[in-house]
Computed example of a mutant assay.
Amino acid sequence: MQRKQTRVVNIGGVGIGGDNPVRVQSMCNTDTRDVAATVGQINQLAGAGCEIVRLAVPDEAAAAVLADIRGQSPVPLIADIHFDHRLALAALDAGFDGLRINPGNIGDEAKVDAVVRAAAAHNTPIRIGVNGGSLEKDLLRQYGGPTPEAMVESGLRHVRMLENRGFHDIKISLKTSSVLKTVAAYRLMSEQVDYPLHIGITEAGTLVRGAVKSAVGLGILLYEGIGDTMRVSLTHDPVAEIGVAYEILRSLGLRERGPEIISCPTCGRTEIGLIDLAEQVEAALRGVEEVFTVAVMGCVVNGPGEAKEADIGIAGGRDLGIIFRKGEVVRKVRGNANLLPEFMKEIDKFLEERRTD
């Protein structure tokens, strides 16, 4: 893989494009007007590894609390604005680190001028966000529907509106719920501009469906070197989006965060509740940032051998479990109820040894 070299954009101190890593971002699903709930979710996202968070700003009441939210956020924030240029100006005044707008739908030329001037004065980048479900009517007629070509032309229209005003601090996204259309659109846009691209499959679906569609679509683009920031859009808790995003990046060798957990798919030899155990281990390690490999296996006989490359692992049997490192047994544990707590003790010991080496 060789990533396309795009120009660098700075979002609140987080570099995007160029040689920077692919950044992981998400969006709060709280009511922005509820400051406590919104800040709480921002902190949860940041704790999971989210590097940039986007907030909906639907009205003046939401805009009025943006400064309070920004002052409490540990990560850069982007304001998502539709139609009302005054909300964009309020977000800039509140110190938000980026805007997500389409300049063509925020009002007349004077209003666009005002937003661009303010963004330039604050050194605040603008993301142009094209959605296949809301393209301009003339483009739908011209291209016969929301085709990749229509999406790219829509994006370039908005880009030109900014460029004509001397503004080039731009990021672009082109999203549909179709994996193939989204991939085709990003390929076309990547050939025409060197602005950083924010990639995602919009309205991807619930946890499993959305994760699969995102992994396929974003995996293709990332493998081709396209994409500077990414969001896995799920009909689920936004925190789950972060884990899926990092697993996509890990599988392509682009970024790693936290332990990689491998577990067998269960079979007729399994004599413990392996599914529950694997999920409990995953939950217990969710806040760990160190990179290492953990195995959760269902067979004491074959588990250590099958997962001998794991840094640390556990394999369960009938009333007996073993804990191993690199395939070598280090402990036996009696009683299935003791497996998880004893395993976590060994992981704590393992991490302490690594930190003091």
Score class of each variant (00 low, 15 high):
350 F>L: 11
80 D>Q: 11
109 E>P: 00
190 S>Y: 04
115 V>Q: 05
232 V>C: 10
123 N>T: 08
18 G>P: 05
252 L>V: 11
195 Y>N: 06
251 S>C: 09
148 P>A: 12
283 A>F: 06
1 M>W: 09
221 L>D: 01
153 E>F: 00
134 S>F: 07
62 A>H: 07
160 R>S: 08
222 L>H: 01
87 L>G: 00
2 Q>V: 14
240 A>I: 05
284 A>M: 08
351 L>R: 15
353 E>K: 15
331 R>A: 15
106 I>F: 12
185 A>R: 10
173 S>C: 13
293 T>D: 02
151 M>W: 03
215 A>D: 02
95 G>V: 00
288 V>R: 14
126 I>G: 07
246 Y>E: 08
173 S>K: 07
290 E>Y: 04
8 V>Y: 04
332 K>A: 11
109 E>H: 12
90 A>W: 00
342 E>C: 12
265 P>T: 02
357 D>T: 14
77 L>M: 09
205 G>R: 09
18 G>A: 06
330 V>P: 01
162 L>D: 01
156 L>P: 01
29 N>R: 15
298 G>F: 02
287 G>V: 01
315 A>H: 03
309 E>N: 12
252 L>S: 10
68 D>Y: 03
228 D>T: 08
51 E>S: 13
69 I>C: 04
7 R>D: 12
230 M>Q: 02
227 G>H: 04
249 L>E: 07
199 I>F: 08
97 D>F: 01
320 L>H: 14
136 E>R: 15
215 A>P: 02
83 F>M: 07
94 A>L: 00
193 V>W: 10
2 Q>T: 13
310 A>T: 06
59 D>Y: 07
302 N>C: 10
263 S>V: 06
21 P>I: 04
127 R>C: 03
134 S>V: 01
19 D>P: 05
257 R>E: 11
331 R>Q: 13
3 R>N: 09
105 N>V: 08
215 A>E: 08
342 E>A: 15
27 M>P: 04
125 P>M: 05
84 D>P: 02
85 H>M: 10
